[in-house]
Structures are given as C-alpha cells and as structure tokens.
Design a protein around this nucleic acid. Structure first.
Lengths: 226, 226
DNA sequence: TTTTTTAAAATCATCGATTTATTTATTTAC
DNA sequence: GTAAATAAATAAATCGATGATTTTAAAAAA
C-alpha cells in the first residue's frame, strides 16, 4: 500500500496516490462526514481529476476501512458506530500488544534509538491545537511514535493491520474529541510505554500500551455514545 | 469487499468483481505464479476487458495481499517467502484463536447449527483431488467451515482479517502441497475443533485450532523451504 | 571490458465519451 | 388511496485513445 505519510522519497507520485492522501486527510478530519455519499461526478469536478484515478483512490481507501464500496451503487464515507469503535479499540489493544511483544524480542539498539527519537520529537509538538499546522504536526509525530514502537516486530502484515486500526481509531478521536482539551495523562503514558519498551520489560510495556489504548478509547466512546 | 465465493445472491455483478474472482482463483491455484509481472495490456487482451475494470480488480486483490502494486511500475503477483508464510501462520493462529474465543462467548444455538452443518458438508467432500471440480468443492467447504467457526464473534473486521490470512495460507498450501496426498489427520482435527466449539470448551477449542493451523503450516513450510 | 548516454520501445496513468444500471418521478390499474 | 408498471433522470461502469514514465537496447565514452 502506498503511503504518503511515511516520509519516504516524494518519488514519482501518481495522481491516485495524491488523491488517496488528500481524501484520507479529509475523511480522518471529518470534513467528509461519516456515511456521506461520494458521488463520483461531483468529486471529479471538485478535485479536478478524471474518474480513473478517483476510483482507484477510493478503492485503496476501502482497504483502509475509510470508504465503503457497493457494486453499481457507489461510494460512501465509512460510517461510524459504537460497535465499530469498540472493535477497533479491542483489536488495536490485542494486535499492538502482540506486535510490541515481538518488537521487544527482536529489536536492536538502533530500534531503541528510533523509539527514543520518535518519542522526543513527539514531546516537542504542542498538542493544544494552536494552529491547524501544529496540530497536524502532533498527529504525524504521534502516528510515527506508535509505528516506531512496533517497527522491530518483523511482521509487516501485522504492522499494516496496526496502522489501519490506528487510523480508524484516530478518525473517531479527531471527530468526536475535536474540541476537547488535550488529555493530560497522555504524555506520561507515552513516556512510560517508551521507557518500558526500551528497557525490554515486555509485560509492563504491553500492559501500559493496552491501558493507554483502552483508556483513550473509552474517552472517545463516552463522547460518541450519549 | 465484494466476494463471489460466499454463495450470496448472484447480484448485479460488475465486470471488476467477476475479474477479481477469476484472478483470485488463478493466483490461489498458482496458475499465475508468485512474483509474475502482470502486464496490463496483455491481461486486457487475454481477459477481453478494458483497463479500468482490470486496474480496479488488481487494486482490490492488493488489499487481499495477493497482488503487489508499485506506482508507475505496474502490478505483480504477490511473491512468496519463508518469512511471509511464517507470519501468515503466526497471525492466523493468534487471530483465529481470538475470534474463536469470542464466537464461543457470543454464539447462540443457531450458530452451533451452522457450525455443525458446515462441518457435515465438509465431510461430504472428497479431498483426494479426483476431479478439479471435486477439489474445488472441498476448498469451498473448507473455507466455509473455518469461516463459520468464527462467524459468531461479532467482530467483522477481525473476520475480514482472518479471511485474508486464510486465503494467503491457502495459496501456499495449494501451490506447495499440490501433489501431496491429503493429510490424514485433518478430518479428525476438524471434527475435534467443531465439537469443542459447540460444547463451548473455549480453551480446548482455541488450542485445537492453533495446533491445526500450526501443524498444517509446518507441513507447508517443510515443502516450501528446502 | 565497463560505464555512461542516448534513443526507442514498452508499459503505465489519465482522460473524455459511451454504455449500462439504478434511482426517482410519473402514470396507470385496481 | 395504494400499488404496480413505466419513463425520465441520475450516476456508475466500461471503453478506446492520448499523454507520461520507465525499461530496454544500442551506441558512445572511459
């Protein structure tokens, strides 16, 4: 899956890939609201592209669970629901836990360094959304941090699953916690997780990670439900 | 994700979806060999379709992990490797185990009935590939059986993950165990798993399922490696 | 011989137009 | 008044052609 977020080479960028990035951002931020119908002709006009790259982009976003496609009946932004959020949280806790355990088992000193670095960069970002730019920088650093934690697990498919689940959860957070003040516990949780990972305290790390995922998940759930 | 394998309504079938089914079968059977380049123009000719549905089909197959896409550089059948097989087996064991546990917790009598029925139908299929048709019938029943075991887990994304992983593993089996005699232990394992699931013996069921997945996985690994 | 440059061929990406299917609106029968 | 049938409008699916990029093959330079 091509991913413009990972800061790899700008590379030869295809129109579809650019679109994937733009649409993903729009969906994750709730600008394209959950459940909204995505009429191809209208999008073609508003994004100034033809149908082919648009279809391709939407197809890729379907595999990330951000878009739903029904044959001959079109596209819509993936809807949100209590059940879906619950599953995302549950699966994230399980799969990131598994991945973290493997990363601790296989990670080397370079990995420790990357975790440390990613955590440091995260602490340098301001969470309280001053400017949208700063908020976006925090989101990027946050994503990178969580990805780095499991980057040494040697299970690329599992990493992919985790990334997908993380994105899904993030969408809920961005939509339903949009104007909440930043959770004050989060920075300490991140620090504790990073610390435990680097010190190879597997049980601690997995426990802390699970708690972090489940606690933040419950906050979103509380905002979503009633 | 549209799926022609589930025997739902023939429905209004789009060309892309038909192609997905055809290509998936071809890839899973090894007719399209792992790593092979999929040149659009050539495929367009041999399948008698235009580029649009072809691209779309390949895009969908990428999300199933059966095709690899690189921007501006084309499509290829997903390669196989020892590491990938190991990850597929490991993840299948973990995720199907989790799903089975949930299914046992949530399943009702109707689910028990479906499991029983799926298992019965599986026993009615001949494994020793007499005709390709009979072999294909067994494959279908086998897939349906494993899907039914976890159908009550109330976690659609997890079910999707499991289906993808099952397909991936099946491809290895079909390719590398093509001319092996059917594994004689498998029918008893299936029976034991179904029995334990229905009787709600969670630990037994998950253990048996894991063993089944890992044991058959090792057989494939042995054929793949040296 | 090996490497670099250049040119040609192959192949992918994108477009605009056409065909097909679905949805909505309208009519007709009961 | 409701329900089935039909017609019009909307939107998706597909096609064939055109424009970019990459790969290859060949030629030139080191």
């Amino acid at each position: 899956m091509t991913d413009l977020r990972s800061a790899d080479l700008p590379a030869s960028t295809t129109l579809s890939s650019t679109l994937v990035a733009r649409l993903r951002t729009a969906i994750m931020n709730g600008e394209l609201v959950p459940g909204a119908k995505l009429v191809l002709d209208r999008m073609r006009a508003s994004y100034g592209v033809s149908l082919s790259p648009l279809r391709e982009a939407l197809c890729r976003l379907e595999s990330e669970g951000l878009v739903e496609i029904v044959d001959q009946r079109g596209y819509r932004v993936a809807p949100v629901s209590r059940d879906n959020l619950a599953e995302v949280i549950r699966l994230r806790a399980e799969l990131e836990g598994l991945a973290a355990r493997e990363a601790i088992a296989h990670g080397d000193a370079a990995w420790e360094g990357r975790v440390l670095s990613a955590h440091h960069q995260l602490t340098r970002c301001q969470r309280g959304s001053r400017s949208p730019g700063e908020q976006e920088a925090w989101e990027r650093a946050h994503r990178a941090f969580h990805a780095e934690l499991i980057s040494a697990c040697r299970m690329p498919m599992l990493q992919q699953f985790c990334e997908t689940l993380h994105d899904q959860g993030d969408r809920y957070r961005r939509i339903f916690l949009k104007d909440h003040t930043p959770d004050p516990h989060v920075p300490a949780e991140h620090a504790a997780i990073a610390q435990a990972m680097i010190e190879r305290r597997a049980e601690d790390a997995v426990g802390l990670l699970r708690d972090h995922i489940e606690r933040t998940g419950r906050k979103i759930m509380a905002a979503l439900c009633p």
